[in-house]
């Protein structure tokens, strides 16, 4: 038998928080329905972490935009999770590909799987188009689709393509309630070795009460123009318009 204090009262309290309150109990344990509900949320998050990005499908969605497909030095998902340093470096093949494609541009967009390929597959193209619409007067390089990517992979990519600013759109670490959240990381003067303090982050972009693609794109548009004007990005660019980059949002970095 599960039990709660008073259904009507608790129904009101439950509306004040997404937390799993008033679950009732069986003996001292959670009722089975709550156990299975939790397991389902965890399974979705795990599947998002381990899903493979379908680069070809993304490229088809992006057509006719020019696309380059690259991957980091992390050979598989298990290594990727253990070795963030490898996820920040281009594979030799990818470095050669970008060197051959090299051409100067203002902005290069990188779509990286990060910790939620599911989120990227579902929402990155829409977010990218919203961002591009905000930056229509700038020269945009080819869209780089990156597998096994950490945030800092945008550094060598931007450097190779001669971009003034790199913008990484990446899957954030999935939580139980949201497993398809995206983050945007913008870096002025991208080159290997940039620190996270030199980036601006727009996080929690998703459809379950998070930031909308349009709002995120507007924030990026403002930040990117400021970055070009002041020739820097990161903590020095922070002001009230920018959500603070808090520790919990640094998941994929």
């Amino acid at each position: 038998m599960s039990e709660v204090v008073n259904d009507e009262l608790w129904a009101q309290l439950r509306r004040t928080t997404p937390a799993r309150i008033a679950l009732g109990r069986v003996g001292h344990a959670l009722p089975l329905a709550e156990v299975l509900d939790f397991q389902l949320a965890h399974a979705r998050a795990r599947d998002a972490v381990h899903a493979a990005l379908d680069g070809a499908a993304l490229a088809a969605e992006l057509a006719p935009l020019p696309v380059l497909q690259v991957e980091s030095d992390a050979p598989d998902r298990a290594t990727y999770l253990r070795r963030p340093d490898l996820g920040r470096r281009l594979s030799a093949r990818s470095a050669a590909l970008l060197a051959a494609a090299s051409k100067r541009c203002d902005v290069v967009f990188v779509i990286g799987d990060g910790l939620s390929a599911t989120g990227v597959q579902a929402g990155a193209v829409r977010l990218l188009r919203a961002c591009m619409a905000e930056l229509a007067d700038l020269t945009i390089g080819p869209v780089v689709i990156a597998k096994a990517a950490r945030v800092a992979l945008a550094d060598p990519v931007g450097e190779a393509l001669g971009a003034r600013v790199s913008v990484m759109i990446i899957g954030e670490r999935p939580g139980l309630s949201v497993h398809d959240s995206l983050g945007i990381y913008m870096t002025f003067g991208p080159r290997s070795g940039r620190s996270d303090a030199e980036r601006n982050c727009i996080s929690n972009i998703h459809g379950a009460g998070g930031l909308s693609p349009q709002d995120a794109a507007r924030t990026l548009g403002w930040l990117l123009r400021e970055a070009l004007r002041r020739q820097l990005s990161g903590v020095e660019l922070k002001d009230d318009q920018t959500p603070l980059l808090s520790a919990k949002e640094q998941g994929p970095a």
Binding site: H28, F38, G175
Partner: peptide, 22 residues
Amino acid sequence: CVPGSDDVMLSYQSLSNHDALY
């Protein structure tokens, strides 16, 4: 302990209030 093991702010799983009872 957090309600139902689900920290809805920090997005990770801790123990639940029920675990303390157990």
